Computed example of a mutant assay.
Amino acid sequence: MARRKSTTGARARQGNAAGIGAAPPSPYLQRRLAFFDPLDDATLAQLEAQVDWLMQDIGIAFRDDPKALEVWRKAGARIDGDRVRMEAAQVRALCKTAPRQFTQIARNRTRDVVIGGGNQVFAPIYGAPFVRDLQQGRRYGDLDSLEKLIKLTYMLPNLHHGGLVICEPCDVPVSKRHLDMLYLHMTCSDKPHLGAITEQSRAQDSVDMAEIIFGREVMDQNCVIMGNVNTNSPLLVDKVVTQAIETYCSRGQGIVVVPFILSGAMGPVSTAASVT
């Protein structure tokens, strides 16, 4: 009886060539459904009128960063101490200079994401101080936990972006923590991710590390890393935010700017006022 030839080895080689064992593709999503708008035109107009009033008459404090105040002054804002006020039409004109969408490229170019427009990019949570698992229960985050979470994010096709602080590695000194976090994102995943923002030198380290990965020429022409900063309520932006913005934007990189408002604690109780 003729011996049957085994195909196990051939199949294994084909599987490796096909990338079996690597993370599955994770394309960002493009919206097909229409946006749901709970506001009628009159309510929207009322909200925008309140926004205009805040910008023109109340203003926002930009604290401890004279360079940021000078940027606003050159843009046509009125400066009173650290309080910045600007005509709503001027602010809206500045907003129009931002692109409607842009691409953040990844180390693996099949995992590039388009930010903005009708695209939706999912990322893990940001800034959790604690982690929990079945073996060790709830505890402060550490570097080992962060590494595992980054690898899980890499393997999950429905997470398109790595974020940064999936958990806070509290076992590493703050002065060097950002370096360890970025190194893990850059070596344990090939999805796009964020950089540090908690101090200007840490933001600069993030940009410099990204340049090592992608090279100056690629970085000069593309967004390869982004920072995530928050305004403080009520109506305050401190130098940590403005200096991080300066660092990322001076290298042509992306910046996420969102208000961090807890209704009833750091902002108004009503939803409409918090949205404003």
Rank of each mutant, 00 (worst) to 15 (best):
Q221N: 08
A196V: 08
P38G: 04
Q56D: 04
E70I: 11
V241K: 06
A123G: 09
P157T: 05
Q221E: 09
A10V: 12
V71G: 07
C223K: 11
D82Q: 09
L33C: 06
Q221P: 07
I245W: 01
G21T: 07
D190Y: 03
A77C: 05
G141Q: 06
V269K: 14
V165P: 04
D40W: 01
S263E: 03
P169F: 07
A106V: 05
E217I: 15
D40M: 07
R107M: 14
Y126C: 13
A22G: 13
M209G: 05
G9N: 10
V269E: 08
Q50T: 14
G252P: 09
L194N: 02
A75G: 09
G141P: 10
R132Q: 12
V165W: 06
F35I: 14
Q253F: 01
Y183L: 13
V257K: 12
A22I: 15
E246H: 03
D144V: 14
L235S: 04
L152S: 14
R100H: 09
R92D: 08
Y28R: 15
M219G: 01
V174R: 14
P124E: 00
T103C: 05
K191N: 04
W72K: 15
V51Y: 04
A34G: 15
R85I: 11
F260Q: 13
F122L: 15
I79M: 09
T198D: 11
A17M: 08
S201Y: 01
L184I: 11
F35A: 12
L44Q: 10
T198N: 12
L152T: 13
V51F: 07
G254C: 12
P169G: 10
R73N: 03
A93T: 06
D171L: 11
H161D: 02
P124G: 00
S206K: 01
Q30T: 15
G127M: 05
V172F: 00
M155C: 12
R4W: 00
L156G: 04
Y126E: 08
R13N: 12
E199M: 09
L236Y: 05
A272D: 11
V256R: 12
A12D: 09
T8Y: 10
K67C: 08
V237M: 04
T8D: 08
D205E: 15
A265L: 14
W72T: 13
R83M: 06
A273K: 06
D180E: 09
L156K: 05
A89E: 08
T110K: 15
K96W: 02
F260Y: 12
P268Q: 06
N232D: 05
Q104M: 08
A244E: 00
T242W: 01
A89R: 12
M181D: 04
A98Y: 03
A18W: 04
W72F: 14
D112F: 02
G59I: 02
L179Q: 03
D82L: 01
T8P: 11
D238W: 00
H160L: 11
F130G: 14
M155I: 14
G215F: 02
F122H: 13
G252I: 08
Q135A: 13
V114P: 01
